[in-house]
């Protein structure tokens, strides 16, 4: 089933992307073009098939590694904030948030 321009603007908003009308048109045709081949997936019956997340779990059980609870990370505020577009008094700055 094909997407509409409404879908495109809804998705763009979810993704926080601003598309001009012409971009939206272009995006629409490209994404619908792609979903043309996506529909082919329906031909394969996947009932009862387990989704594969970590690919190597296809042959062995891959489980979460847990680390010891040690606070060993040295504070590096200057390093972690050195690329901030706007910062003051050790805080990242953004346009005022209205609750």
């Amino acid at each position: 089933m094909a997407l509409t321009l409404e879908d495109i603007s809804r998705i763009a908003h979810l993704a926080r992307l601003e598309l001009s009308p012409s971009d939206s048109e272009k995006m629409l045709s490209q994404i619908n073009g792609f979903f043309g081949i996506v529909e082919k997936m329906e031909a394969i019956d996947t009932d009862g098939v387990e989704p594969l997340f970590h690919p190597v779990s296809a042959i062995e059980d891959i489980t979460l590694r847990l680390r010891d609870d040690i606070a060993s990370e040295p504070s590096n505020r200057s390093g972690n904030m050195q690329n901030a577009p706007a910062a003051e008094e050790g805080l990242f700055l953004v346009p005022k948030v209205i609750e």
């Binding site: 998705i11 979810l14 993704a15 598309l19 329906e42 098939v49 387990e50």
Partner: peptide, 30 residues
């Protein structure tokens, strides 16, 4: 990049997750 963000956001969005994302992961297993 924007095109892929759009596709990815769509296939995860409400009502499409099972039909697209989950289906793809099952096919990945196959």
């Amino acid at each position: 990049v924007q095109r892929r963000i759009m596709i990815g956001t769509y296939v995860l969005s409400h009502g499409y997750y099972d039909a697209y994302y989950l289906k793809a992961l099952k096919l990945r297993r196959l």
